[in-house]
Design a protein around this nucleic acid. Structure first.
Ligand code: ZN
Ligand code: ZN
Ligand code: ZN
Ligand code: ZN
Lengths: 143, 143
DNA sequence: GCTTGACCCTGAAGTAACTTCAGGGTGTTG
DNA sequence: CAACACCCTGAAGTTACTTCAGGGTCAAGC
């Protein structure tokens, strides 16, 4: 099959497929005489695998690790478990960060219940406060 | 004061300060005879404002909107409220997304309680399933 | 006088995971 | 044989920065 069909089977764009190839996530496919990429069932499976991982917000690095494990079928799968646990950790960290953020935002929002002029707005005043919080090291890749 | 002092007062790097200037978030400062940037108190306040907004994960576009409002002190501040409500929405959407993600990840993790060989791993099998979920339009800028 | 070191300057390139664009080939259908 | 859908490559744009290369400024110490 050609790239457009592959892409639609995995619900992504042809550009994304070509990008994954360039990144080494998808193997380089055979070409037709017209220089079109030619794919088969294994490519569909691998691309779906990648897209599912991306839908779970894994990085390409994480996906690459899983794909490497997938290519050694006889190994034991503890590496898979470790990676999944770590990634669940990434999600947990980000949820915690955002929950804290939301608290602060809601508190800030309360500083302006009645609409005043800009130079008296409690929100803008709150944002102008000098805080001493250096951005610390991130333990998640989720933005 | 010079750029290093400004940066340390706002807990960021000098590169970040120069970047904000290039982006138009900070006004271009005066220069010393040695061509060094020279800042005053208003710059400190504006930079702290920006850093606080960034600590709340606002985009530069959102911050730019707030700064523009800040520069019209006599206007009423309903725009500020709207922006904050919208941004709280962005955070809410992302928290909901991540919570769903986490559910799926935990479920997937349960598919491999005992460590098997890779080609029998329930996790990898779960990830290989073809799903029909086209990535829909994002209503948050939070990654 | 001279060197060392901390600080400053510019402009370009790298990061993640794509998307968009420019400019052009292929192949089927009417 | 022209229109149109589909394919190709390589480069640049996206966000919010960071890193790097290559070079100037200035105060202190020998
Ligand atoms: Zn992860
Ligand atoms: Zn207000
Ligand atoms: Zn927002
Ligand atoms: Zn397993």
């Amino acid at each position: 099959m050609k790239i457009g069909e592959l892409a639609s089977m995995a619900q992504c764009t042809v550009e994304t497929v070509r990008y994954y190839e360039k990144e080494g996530l998808l193997p380089v496919p055979a070409r037709t005489t017209a220089n079109y990429r030619s794919y088969g069932k294994p490519h569909v499976e691998r691309l779906c695998f990648i897209r599912n991982c991306r839908a779970l917000d894994m990085t390409h690095e994480e996906i690459r690790t899983l794909l490497d494990l997938l290519d050694l079928p006889s190994e034991d799968c503890s590496g898979v478990n470790q990676l999944l646990d770590a990634h669940i950790g990434h999600v947990d960290v980000r949820i915690a960060e955002l929950s804290q953020l939301k608290e602060k935002l809601v508190e800030l929002r309360l500083a302006c219940r009645t609409e005043k002029s800009v130079d008296q707005c409690g929100i803008l005043r709150g944002l102008a406060v000098v805080e001493t919080a250096p951005r610390d090291h991130r333990e998640t890749h989720l933005g």
